[in-house]
């Protein structure tokens, strides 16, 4: 049992949800990507989505993150000063701005989330410039700060990430996302491409940052141990549908659905 799981962030009962996913379905022609998924996410909550490959995890993540319009259903985000708004009814420019300021997206392969041939510093500073910061010295200072926070050597600030190891690239991708102080992070298998020792370091870093910054996050993973370590809540998907959901330790310690029982019993130790 998770007596030493991620420490709970502060929960405010007065705020509504940060995100409301309502009956989201995404079809690809006849094929189901995901079907009828609903949940609320509050500030500071980390939600993991687990299930085998092809179960619809990434499809669902892309729908929620504004990257793939659902066939049916709505994704509402709590905009500062405006409350819950359907993200697919915002103008494209507004959605893009949201995605690069208030949200972050960490790809499984850091090369999908970084510009691999421009310097590490430019990769991080770019997001600041995108929101209008033009002060070179300040951008460079902030970039250096974030490199330190993700435990990157700031002497590498002018090197291209193509020269970094996979673990360093992944940490740089995280710094690039966090520099604008997002409230919500989307992560698609953030540790899957890394060695086990590097995974542990990255998980610990993510865990610390999420609780320190009060971040909400949705993490797609096939690794139940990652879910146990990072997430307060867990959704289990199979064939595009959520078959079980609950607090992470409930789902892993007392699985109800046959598929969840199979998944949990197939793991060496989660």
């Amino acid at each position: 049992m998770a007596t030493a799981s991620a420490s709970a962030p502060e929960f405010s009962s007065t705020h509504g949800p940060l995100l409301r996913v309502n009956a989201v379905t995404r079809l690809y022609g006849e094929r189901t990507g995901c079907r009828n998924v609903s949940f609320d996410l509050h500030q500071g909550e980390v939600l993991a989505i687990a299930g085998e490959s092809g179960s619809g995890k990434t499809t669902l993540l892309n729908c929620i993150a504004g990257r793939s319009r659902p066939t049916a259903g709505t994704v509402e985000y709590n905009l500062r000063h405006e409350g819950l708004r359907d993200i697919y009814r915002l103008s494209e420019a507004r959605l893009r701005l949201l995605a690069r300021t208030d949200w972050g997206f960490v790809h499984q392969n850091p090369r999908d989330g970084l510009r691999i041939d421009v310097s590490a510093g430019a990769n991080v500073g770019e997001r600041l410039m995108a929101i209008g910061d033009r002060h070179y010295g300040r951008i460079r200072d902030t970039t250096g700060d974030w490199m330190r926070r993700v435990e990157l050597d700031t002497s590498r600030i002018d090197d291209a990430p193509a020269t970094f190891s996979g673990g360093m690239q992944q940490r740089l991708q995280i710094a690039r996302n966090l520099v604008t102080h997002p409230r919500l992070m989307f992560m698609d298998e953030p540790t899957a491409s890394l060695d086990v020792s590097v995974q542990a370091r990255l998980l610990d870093l993510l865990r610390g940052l999420a609780s320190e910054l009060g971040l909400a996050a949705i993490v797609v993973t096939h690794d139940l141990a990652v879910a146990r370590l990072l997430a307060h809540r867990l959704l289990i998907m199979k064939s595009g549908e959520v078959v079980e959901s609950g607090l992470t330790d409930q789902v892993l310690d007392d699985p109800q659905h046959p598929y969840t029982q199979l998944l949990v019993s197939s793991v060496l130790q989660a």
């Binding site: 007596t3 030493a4 542990a200 998980l203 610990d204 370590l229």
Partner: peptide, 11 residues
């Protein structure tokens, strides 16, 4: 909740 097992967190 205090169990007899510590769930160690890397690092």
């Amino acid at each position: 909740y205090v169990s007899q097992f510590l769930r160690v967190i890397p690092r």
